[in-house]
Nucleic acid binder design. Structure first.
Lengths: 110, 110
DNA sequence: TCCACCTACAACCATGTGGTTGTACGTTAG
DNA sequence: CTAACGTACAACCACATGGTTGTAGGTGGA
């Protein structure tokens, strides 16, 4: 069962990408302004390759995109996927609200 | 850096819990109405113990709660945590919108 | 009481994940 | 041209995850 417009595997990828503090932090950095991978790597206590992997996970989830600028690869935040996750969560809340409304109706009838 | 009101480890737990189709499906089922663990287990092509583990992951993320009813354990959906995730995502979108509104400033910034 | 049901949990296994180091390749600066 | 930089990727390791089966305990019904 798919609740929102997000396909199962896509939801998997997006939520998994967000389930790591480093990746969420990378996301906030590149959403503010594009940064190169090595520029990002400087901010974390891990190897360049590790940061590169985190960026790859975010890219697979379509949360970021990369654009070549000379010998650098500039990472940009993609807000569209983020918005789709927000809509998915809204769908869950919608389901809950309906249930809550029904409960309220039942309570009113008493 | 913590963007929203969700602590780092809590965000980890919540997003990780949501990064699995079975768990998201369990969530939709119990958000509509409370169900026992074995009742849930009947709907999935895996062992009872596996479903029990998924429920445990959701419980650690505070997305569901369990209440004893006789010899059954009724699983209920907790909407509060869900709402907090939605707020966190709203915060990301807020950051992005800020960027869109003030692209010139940000270009000067870094 | 006794048995069946629901749950909890431990032990175990295969696979995935997050980290490392090393190597290779294209691009820019000097 | 050469050297340094930025990136990509493979190989490897430790550990977490998702699944299994088996065992044990508490509760309800007959």
């Amino acid at each position: 069962m798919v609740v929102g417009g997000l396909a199962g595997t896509e939801a998997d990828r997006v939520f998994h990408a967000l389930a790591d503090a480093t990746r969420r932090d990378i996301l906030t950095k590149v959403i503010r302004s594009g940064k190169s991978v090595s520029e990002l790597a400087q901010h974390y206590p891990m190897s360049f390759a590790a940061v590169q992997k985190h960026v790859a996970v975010l890219e697979r989830a379509a949360l970021i995109s990369k654009v070549r600028r000379g010998r650098e690869q500039i990472v940009h935040g993609e807000v569209t996927a983020l918005r789709r996750v927000a809509l998915l969560l809204d769908a869950y809340e919608e389901i809950w609200r309906h249930r809550a409304d029904r409960i309220a109706d039942i309570l009113d009838q008493e």
